[in-house]
Design a binder for these strands. Sequence first.
DNA 1: ACATTTGTTCTTCT
DNA 2: TAGAAGAACAAATG
Length: 287
Amino acid sequence: MPELPEVETVRRGLEKLIVGGQITQVHLLYPKLINGDSQAFITGVTNASFTAIDRRGKYLLLRLSNGHTIVSHLRMEGQYSVESIETRPYKHTEIIFELLDQRRVFYNDTRRFGRMTLTNTHFEINDVPSLAKLGPEPTEKDLALDYMVDIFSRSKKPVKSFLLDQNQIAGIGNIYADEVLWQSKIHPETPTKTLTVRELSLLRENIIAEMKRAIAHHGTTVHSFSNVFGEVGQFQNELQAYGRVGQPCLRCGTTMVKIKVGQRGTTFCPACQMTHDRRIDEINRTN
DNA sequence: ACATTTGTTCTTCT
DNA sequence: TAGAAGAACAAATG
């Protein structure tokens, strides 16, 4: 399930392997991969070279020498691999870019949920609305506390759902949402606007640190994630909340529980991630 | 056979 | 009428 750290891991691999490579031929094996006109996609990328690989939230932006950008979203199980010329397509290979140096870049996707869009690099913001609407990157530089306080004050949604909203903050998915809420001792159903500045500051620090740490571990491999080199991530060994239902909380020993929040599986500690009511009591007591 | 998985978009309701 | 909640959707797996 590629979230920001996994997509960043893929980006770094692609940057290392394919920048400078020229596309000589494209084999589109699953036309629905392409948003829009798939023939235009093929002609729009053929003969171009990869000049850079960027990322915005969970989107990969493959820059081409001809002024186009491939906007690629991996969704649940999308994956790139770089292969030699004789490698046959896998069962779930959806597109193959043949490079001048005889290598082939595969995009594989067992769930077939991932999508690619070809856009003019200069107009990508206009052409791809979901890119335009993305919130800031969860970094020290881009995610200001003032902004957090502002947007969180505007919503009554459960904080878990709010963190998953890419238009508020880009890049957080189900795994890291559960992790940062556990770290911040915040109950996932807490109404967003009831969080205090102190709590938001802590949450912000945890989000920023967690993204950095997960990238350093090359992402989390839960089901299928692997980087361009076919290597799995290491961060699954660091998870403290996600997937630990029925196991003791690493902080207080209470059995972790799993509920649905906004139709998403959510694992948390019912003891040390305080409910809204208990927080209010606490705040009243300390005042 | 059907629930489960996820991010995004569409639809419905308040 | 904005905003939130819920459903639909993509497809495969166990």
